[in-house]
Every structure is written in structure tokens, then in C-alpha cells.
Design a protein around this nucleic acid. Structure first.
Lengths: 202, 202
DNA sequence: TCAAAACGTTAACAAAAGATAAGAATTTAG
DNA sequence: CTAAATTCTTATCTTTTGTTAACGTTTTGA
């Protein structure tokens, strides 16, 4: 846990703009409830079996969400810079998480603990904006997830991959292929075949 | 669009309790922003290509979310009594919906238009509770969707069906099997085979 | 720097799912 | 009440995916 530089604070403030804009007085109180954590590569942000009592904002770096099923690591999602990160279900319900989240590279993550989130939600000075903030963040992910579920319902793995080629620049550029395969709901071997099929068809 | 009986209002108030509790003054203003609609079987609540400018609460009945892909109807989700219903992405972003929502039986749905939602979010008397309400509803679906995505990533269709047997009482009892198949991300023929496989294995 | 680990492709085979069609049972609607 | 539509199962065939293993390449970390 480290002190935040003013540049980091500015980046955070700007990154949150789509979700919440604080005035100066609010900001001063708000930043008393956040901490900066430096994660080493592979360091865990959340762990299956443990309650995830915090959520974060990726200031620098990236994280990978994964499950372990029958001893096998299966990647479910990623968060990159300027995105939020949490094992949401665990954070929101207080139940143990069922997935892991790890830093994929040395990462700076701003963290708000559940306790501090609740303090702010109960602080008259911040309550309204924090409720709104929570709503907009949840809605943002709701939309992402709705689209992702649609893709599993209506598309074949090949169609999902072709769609990712159009829209998933960051994932394609920064993630190894076997993570992408898991993300698409298939095995790495199968994705390798799909890629070959697409090449031949062209 | 019909007038709400006091019994219906009470049922609505109670159904929303997990998300929002209004005092009497707030409630009086709130209910000026809602309407009751009676849907006939197969009547559309939302339509692909059109913006979904409303969201609802299923007071009685049930609805089905579906896509049409290459002329084929694919069921993605259901909402039952005491659940919310909307083509959320469209409602939240103002973009045209990509899916349809239809009543599966004669249904009573309480509707809040986008315009009225915005009026309430901007009304100082209700703003805080409406932000909170929106947050809790969005978080509720976020959790549902997160679990659903996990199931596509980590489970086989057979495992998803077995899980549904344990937890999906309402869907299993009330939905025809080909809707359930789509919901699980497979074809009706495939679900029929899975069911046979499970019987034989027992 | 160098051995170990991770990564992507390919092959071979098994298992599962998709597509299509046919037929029986059930439900729906006029 | 009855014809039409819907639903579910089954069969056949094709396509795709999963599994396992091997191999060369690249990356990683001590």
C-alpha cells in the first residue's frame, strides 16, 4: 500500500469521470477512503474461497479473472487500464468468491474496501454520489455481461472469435491465445483450429 | 394502460422491498410515475430494432427474452413474477434493442418509462432513493449474469442442465423444453439427448 | 545465460453437438 | 370439437469440439 502521487490521483479522477464527478470538497473526503496497491505479476487480487472485501480501479496494468475447475485454470475475463475490477458477486453479497483474479503484469490498482464503500454510502456528504457511482458502474457491467451472454446464446465459437477480431483489439494484442480461447468458451486447441479454418476460407 | 388497484400497489411495494423502501410521501409521488399494462399472450414488451424506452416489474405472468438470428427464434432469458424486465442495454443507452421480449401468458406489468425514471432521478425528493434503487437492481442482475457467464465458461451443456435441475424450479416447470435448450446455449435436439443420457446413466 | 516453463500448432481419435427430417403426442385456437 | 400448430423424441449424417500427446518455438526466471 503506497501513497498516491498527484498525477495518479488526477488519472483516477479522470478515469472515473464517466461514472462520477466530485467537487473539491467531496473529492478530499473521497480520497481518504481509497488506497493504492502495487501488484506484482501473478499476485492475487481476489481468491476463490475467500470473500472479496474490496473493489478496484486499474490505474496501470491488467488483471485476469479465472476459475480452477478440476485442477484446470480457465480464464473468464480481463480488466485493463481505466477499468474496474472485483469479484463482484462476492463483494456485493459477502459470500466467498468462486474465482481468482491475478495481475498479469506489474499493476497499480486503486482499492476501495467494502468497509470504506459503506462508510461513504452512509456519509451524507457523499451518499448520493456514491449511490449514483455504484449504479453507473453496475449498469456498465450489466451491459457488457448482457452482450456476452447473448454471444453465447446466439453465436458459434467461430462467430464469437470473428466478432472479437473486430472489437477486441486490447484482448487480442495483449493476451495469449489460450486465455482468449477460454474467454470464448472453448479450448485452446479448438481456437487454433478455428484460426486455421478462417485463414483457409479467406 | 389501466388504473392500479390498491392490492396491486401493495404487491408492487412489497415486491420492491429488497431494492427500495419509500415512506408515504415518497410513495405518493413515486406512483404518479408508474403505469400498469396488461399484456396478452405473445404481446411484445420490447422489440429488436426499436429503442426500449421503459422498464417493468412483472406483477403477474411471465415474459421471455429472445433473439431472431437467421430467421430462427432463440430464447435467452425469462422474467417471472416479482422480477424486473427490460431490454436493459437499450433502456440504458438509448440504442435500438437487439432482442424481443414477449409475454408468455396474460401478464400484468408495471411500467416506468425512461422519461419518468429521469424525472424521478432529477426530483430532489426521490433522487437519492432512485439512484439507490437503480444501483441495487443493476447489482442484482450483475450477479445473475456473472454466474451465467461463468457457467458458459466453465461448464459443459450437460453440467449446466444438471445445475438447472437443482436450482431452476420455475424455469423447468413453466417453460417448454426448447426454450430451456436455447437458454442453456444448445439446440432442443441436443437437450433431448442430454436428458436421455442422464436417464440411462442413473 | 541457460534450463525450465509456457505457448501455439498439428495429428488422431472419441465424444458431443448441429442440421434435417419424420413421427407421435399434446396443446391450441377458431 | 376438430384441424392446425406445437412440442418432444428419435434417427441419420455431418461438423465441430474435446482430449491427449508430440513437437518446435518462444519466453521466463534463476
Amino acid at each position: 500500500m503506497d501513497a498516491l502521487t498527484s498525477a495518479q490521483l488526477e488519472a483516477f479522477r479522470k478515469g472515473m469521470e464517466p461514472y462520477v464527478v466530485f467537487n473539491e470538497a467531496e473529492w478530499i473526503v473521497f480520497i481518504q477512503h481509497i488506497t493504492l496497491h502495487n501488484f506484482k505479476k501473478k499476485q492475487l487480487f481476489a481468491e476463490a474461497g475467500k470473500v472479496c472485501n474490496h473493489f478496484g480501479f486499474v490505474l496501470k496494468g491488467s488483471v485476469r479473472y479465472y476459475h480452477i475447475k478440476d485442477g484446470v485454470d480457465i480464464t473468464g475475463y480481463f480488466s485493463f487500464e481505466n477499468e474496474f475490477v472485483s469479484s463482484y458477486k462476492s463483494f456485493l453479497t459477502g459470500e466467498p468468491a468462486t474465482n481468482y483474479i491475478e495481475a498479469l503484469e506489474p499493476s497499480q490498482i486503486i482499492i476501495i474496501s467494502k468497509k470504506n464503500m459503506e462508510l461513504m454510502l452512509n456519509n451524507p456528504m457523499l451518499a448520493y454520489k456514491m449511490e449514483r457511482f455504484g449504479r453507473l458502474v453496475a449498469e456498465h457491467y450489466l451491459i457488457c455481461y448482457e452482450e456476452r451472454i447473448s454471444s453465447f446464446i446466439t453465436q458459434t465459437p467461430e462467430e464469437r472469435y470473428l466478432k472479437l477480431l473486430q472489437t477486441g483489439r486490447e484482448i487480442l494484442q495483449r493476451m495469449p491465445q489460450h486465455y482468449i480461447a477460454n474467454f470464448l468458451g472453448i479450448t485452446p486447441v479448438s481456437l487454433s483450429r478455428i484460426r486455421k479454418r478462417i485463414l483457409v476460407e479467406k
